Simulated assay, not measured.
Amino acid sequence: MEFDFERLAADDRYKILTSTIVPRPIAWVTSLSKNGVRNAAPFSFFNAMSKTPPIVAIGIQANADGSMKDSARNILDTREFVVNLVPRSAAEAMNLTSIDAPSDVDELALANLETSPSSKVRPARIAVSPVAFECRLHTPIEVAPSQLIVLGEIVQAHVSDEFVLDAQNHYIDTPALNLVGRLHGRGWYATTGDAFQIDRPEPYAKRSERAR
């Protein structure tokens, strides 16, 4: 079946996107308002985009009333944020921080989440997250009114010691992180437990040379 995205309503496009682009990693973003109010919210329109510079991209939709979400406003105002990754053990707390709440509500306190100080930015890290990336705003892209794509440059990475296999070679025990990804529909998630490996093909030149 064909779907004409130039004709579909926004909510219908969203259904198709979120039902097919799966699993999506979750950026559990912590930020501060210009008045110092803490904010935490999860976003699954998220991924790493570049290593030089180290860039992450986060798509932050507008609120239902058309206003800009607190996370987007905070990032624009302060140019700093932290991307925390979500372990299975914190899935319920992460979900609670997605609550539609007034801008003066501290979602970290609401979800009883402990934090750890960041090294280079003001927003704190979520202590239960095994991986956190401290970011500074690189490029904001307002793709629609109050709808923002944030390109953030990672300036510091934190990985819990128990998941570092070889610090010198930067080998991480990815399966042990037991991170959560977003799936289709309302409230569906997945972990990284069902994994398989496929070796990358050798360079085409070597393949051709061997075939002679």
Rank of each mutant, 00 (worst) to 15 (best):
48 A>L: 11
129 S>I: 11
174 T>R: 01
69 K>D: 09
56 V>N: 12
110 L>T: 02
189 Y>E: 03
69 K>W: 09
134 E>H: 12
41 A>V: 04
28 W>M: 00
32 L>Q: 12
128 V>P: 00
169 N>I: 04
179 L>N: 14
202 E>V: 00
147 Q>S: 11
160 S>A: 13
188 W>C: 06
164 V>Q: 03
152 G>N: 09
186 R>I: 04
128 V>F: 01
138 H>T: 13
174 T>Q: 15
201 P>G: 01
167 A>W: 03
21 I>W: 03
35 N>R: 11
60 I>D: 08
26 I>E: 06
66 G>R: 12
161 D>Y: 15
62 A>Q: 15
198 I>N: 06
31 S>H: 07
13 R>F: 05
190 A>S: 15
145 P>C: 04
191 T>V: 08
172 I>T: 13
210 R>S: 05
12 D>W: 12
95 N>E: 10
27 A>Q: 04
14 Y>K: 03
187 G>I: 08
80 E>N: 08
8 L>D: 11
23 P>H: 03
108 L>R: 15
155 V>L: 00
61 Q>S: 15
51 K>R: 10
40 A>C: 14
25 P>I: 10
202 E>A: 02
188 W>Q: 11
8 L>Y: 07
175 P>H: 11
35 N>P: 03
62 A>T: 04
126 I>W: 07
206 K>C: 01
56 V>T: 11
27 A>M: 10
164 V>F: 05
80 E>K: 09
43 F>P: 15
141 I>W: 09
207 R>I: 00
176 A>T: 09
109 A>Q: 15
168 Q>R: 04
164 V>P: 05
106 D>C: 08
135 C>W: 12
191 T>P: 15
